[in-house]
């Protein structure tokens, strides 16, 4: 089989991988990317789906968000397994998927991984697509929506004004960035106000929490103005709701500001 692989493609794979490892070091991300690129390069009859794999591979390198990069490699591998015409590239795509799974930055992808193995052995493209669709549905039912194992934390932009600190712009927490941090140096033990709107749910139970020092405040759906006494920074606002179909949980921090004790 190896003799069938054109030498120029091997050279391309080798050079690209070497350049990647040299410039970015060896990690789960770079190894999975190199395997994805190997899969793409080994495809004999390039078609549209493999072009999509190339696009996701390209964007995964540009993005500075490691989770996004890994997710895009995963998407590229899945397209590759479904769309490539011969076994060898499909094996490379599966190997790329395996590295992502063991690297552990994404959750909820195990059922899809398990289904991908028999899928890569199937000759008919239609069956491979069906198997992967089955894997996606099984994954949703068993593990829920795939997500990042480490939360992306947004630090909100603060402005110093006279003796107070304000966070004037709205910022939201949702399932892809569930934690917002409010930081203010040398402002401990002041009181603060946080104006919050939460919603997107079909019930009125707990949406999230505000944590500061030892205090915890619950966020319920609707608009609320929280007064937090003797704040200890950072203030952590977390969306605690998990994925559920037909729900779009979101917490909007509309505005926040500290007040001096005398006010």
């Amino acid at each position: 089989m190896m003799s069938a692989i054109r030498s120029d493609r091997l050279l391309l794979i080798g050079l690209a991988s070497a350049a990647l490892f040299l410039l970015r070091g060896i990690s789960g991300f770079t190894v999975s990317w190199a395997l994805l690129f190997t899969g793409i390069s080994l495809i004999e009859k390039q078609n549209r789906i493999t072009f999509i794999s190339l696009i996701t591979a390209g964007i995964s390198l540009i993005t500075g968000d490691a989770n996004a990069g890994t997710a895009l490699i995963l998407a590229g591998s899945v397209f590759g397994i479904a769309g490539s015409d011969s076994l060898l590239p499909r094996v490379a795509f599966f190997a790329s998927f395996s590295v992502i799974l063991f690297e552990g930055s994404l959750t909820g992808i195990l059922p899809l991984f398990i289904v991908s193995f028999p899928a890569l052995l199937l000759k008919r493209e239609r069956w491979r697509y069906s198997a992967i669709a089955g894997g996606i549905i099984a994954g949703l039912l068993i593990c829920g929506l795939p997500g990042a194992s480490a939360y992306r934390i947004l630090v909100h932009d603060e402005v110093h004004a006279e003796n107070a600190v304000i966070w004037p712009d709205p910022i939201s927490a949702n399932l892809n960035h569930p934690v917002v941090l409010l930081e203010a140096e040398n402002m401990d033990k002041t009181d603060m106000f946080i104006e919050i709107s939460a919603g997107g749910m079909r019930d009125s139970t707990l949406m999230g929490v505000i944590e500061t020092g030892g205090q915890t405040h619950q966020i319920l759906p609707g608009s609320n103005l929280f007064r937090i006494r003797e704040t200890t920074f950072p203030v952590v606002i977390t969306l605690t709701r998990k994925w559920q179909p037909f729900n779009h949980p979101v917490i909007w921090i509309q505005e926040a500001w500290t007040v001096s004790q005398s006010e």
Binding site: T63, D65, N67, A68, T70, A71, L72, L74, A75, V78, F79, L106, I136, L140, L145, P146, G147, A148, R152, L175, N176, H177, W243
Partner: peptide, 13 residues
């Protein structure tokens, strides 16, 4: 496929 992964990162969304 990408919408399945939207919760991973805002860029994927």
């Amino acid at each position: 496929v990408l919408s399945l992964l939207w919760a991973v990162s805002p860029s994927v969304e």
